[in-house]
Nucleic acid binder design. Structure first.
Lengths: 214, 214, 214, 214
DNA sequence: CATGAATGAGAATTCATTCAT
DNA sequence: TATGAATGAATTCTCATTCAT
């Protein structure tokens, strides 16, 4: 079940009461549909089948609730893949070619996105308005994502698998392409009939070879 | 001056009083900085040097003010370049190669973006929350932008300048790349020292040839 | 034309500009439809085809406008019929029987009401809320209507045409009956097909002889 | 105590908090004195000794508060007397003569009016301005009051106790007479020394036999 | 832990009235 | 005399947060 997957994403250490879980569920649904400022705590309480006061037993403020929803997404998105396994596997030549790495990367993030659409929607929508989220985001990117990407790009450049472009430029090419695909897939046209495997492969082809004719 | 450029973007037909212009300026500044829901009409009035009631003489509701700010951006962004000149010039072989078209296109939108950063920030930030804006956006895209891109892509495919990929895929490659560049340039890192000309050319190179090594 | 009749009712001494007449017309229409508090001066101005400021050139305040509309109605309603002709005619035996007087009275007020429905609606609706109107009303009633009725009732009592009831009681019978008929006729069911002459006569019959069987 | 009688009239099903009762009391007092549009929610809150926001926890809008005050009056006024007992008792010959029925009817409504003066004032004053109230009123009259009156009138006509007049005419005679008496008694001159029993009897006499001399 | 009534600061909006032109 | 932009006080309503039970 998607919702309990997401709750897993959010539950790191603590034991949650059933009510707390209901609150999280309700908040995620409502905020992802209507946005943080269009969702009142009383609505959340109602949908969660909980008294309004109960929300504030578990989350100091409404913003705190938002942060508790969004931060784990950032952490997971950046940490899970990179950090531990990613770089090491690259250098252990698990991914012989850059395409292979890219495929594993997209595949992994694709699945994460798939089971966390509402959470990611919330993250993208609210990022612009909450400094707390921006800080967490920047930190995760500069500490985890960027260094990992950097190392990997350097590695494959040396192997001649990547053109001799500034790493920044390569990232600015790869990341929007992948994000663009996923946003189209999950947010803009989620109901279209998608052949995901084919789309992923095509995305990789284009990233590697561009759109230019031979 | 940037601000009066923007006011020009917004002023289509009517005569505005000086106070009305002040209101628009203040609203654009505040909303682009803090978002629509974090900006109160009393703040706007204060910054505009105007009584709060004055806002509502000119804009029926706060939302109406937002729409009046955002809609012209959509219209301008989609209409100005495309529609009239764009397609005709393509077929008159003004742009011999797809790269040339791409260059002209990026250049043009780059300049538009440059003098309308706050307006575009507002558009991007609020798009998710206001159905009125979404409607205008979708319509502009499907009626103006998409058909024009489609025709151009078909044209250059025939000439062998573009790979035989689905048009959708090409668009999903080109658009995010260009947007990604502009967002980095104007929103994420506006203060970095940019060699715009070089960046644009590099973006085109990568779009055409991908990131893969020879 | 009904509306110019009403304007006549309101125009006592002064010369009005065309704009002033338009303002009165618009105010009467709107206030009688929606009530004083639901009608804004801007609406009145708009319907009158006049700038908002113009209203305040002619009427010091919005309330002043209301008073200028309502007071003449009170004056006319009470003064026109009574005072001069009424009592004198009674004693000159113009009306041999009370029924004749009642008929002349109802007929006369009926016609007045007929050509002043909106004004009377306004009077009745706003009477409860504006002390200024109440004062004018009470004064008119106690100075003009009541004394005249009193004299007439005494006169016909002496002639044996009226039962020996307290005058108050007789008034409390006659006035509501007449008002009840007129309100039904003009306000509650104005669209029903009415045989006015027959209704008036029947009203008189019942006032005189009650509803009891023989 | 009059006020708690009225609260009883309004409290049908639900449990009210003490504050809610204070709000109702304050609203009834103020609105009956000054009218709905001249009474602000902040005044009501102040007199009720309650925060303004508290009003809106219990009544969605200011209008909702008005409706919750006025509707039960309509319901009670029309329902209580009629429907159940009224018609049945008529046919069980409880009221041998029409006068007896009239007496019971006036007496009953008199007592209701006596303990609900403010509520009735509000009803009469606001009826003209709120379609919601009009609808409730019309429905109550056409579904409850009118059919009952109709049956009773037919019944007494057959018995020869009422003249052979159209029922409408009889109603248009009886109702305004009774209302006229009550309005004079409770609203226009509540402070006069009244011998209520005598007045009621006299009203009946006049309704039955008219004002005409023998 | 949970409740839900109560709060009160602030938000958007209305509108009669003024005044420079 | 007429205009209409501007005002600002007042109004209704929202909502995150508190707290006694």
């Amino acid at each position: 079940m998607t919702m309990s997957d997401m709750i897993d994403t959010l539950r790191h250490d603590e034991k949650m009461t059933p009510k707390q879980i209901e609150i999280l569920k309700a908040a995620i649904e409502l905020i992802s549909e209507k946005g943080y400022y269009n969702t009142s705590t009383s609505e959340i309480a109602e949908r969660a089948g909980v008294a309004e006061g109960t929300i504030f037993r578990h989350y100091r403020t409404k913003k705190d609730l938002l942060i508790k929803i969004v931060k784990p997404v950032i952490t997971d998105f950046s940490a899970s893949f990179f950090a531990e396994q990613f770089v090491h596997q690259v250098f252990r030549e698990k991914y012989g070619h850059f395409e292979d790495l890219l495929y594993a990367f997209i595949k992994n993030r694709f699945e994460f996105a798939q089971s966390n659409v509402p959470l990611i929607k919330i993250l993208l929508q609210e990022l612009a308005f909450h400094p707390e989220i921006q800080t967490a985001y920047k930190r995760a990117f500069s500490e985890k994502v960027y260094p990992a990407l950097n190392q990997a790009i350097d590695f494959y450049k040396q192997k001649g698998e990547l053109r001799d472009l500034p790493n920044e430029t390569i990232i600015r090419m790869v990341v929007p392409s992948v994000l663009g695909f996923m946003m189209t897939r999950f947010i803009l046209k989620p109901d279209q009939n998608w052949d995901d495997e084919a789309e992923i492969k095509q995305t990789i082809t284009v990233i590697m070879g561009g759109v230019g004719g031979t």
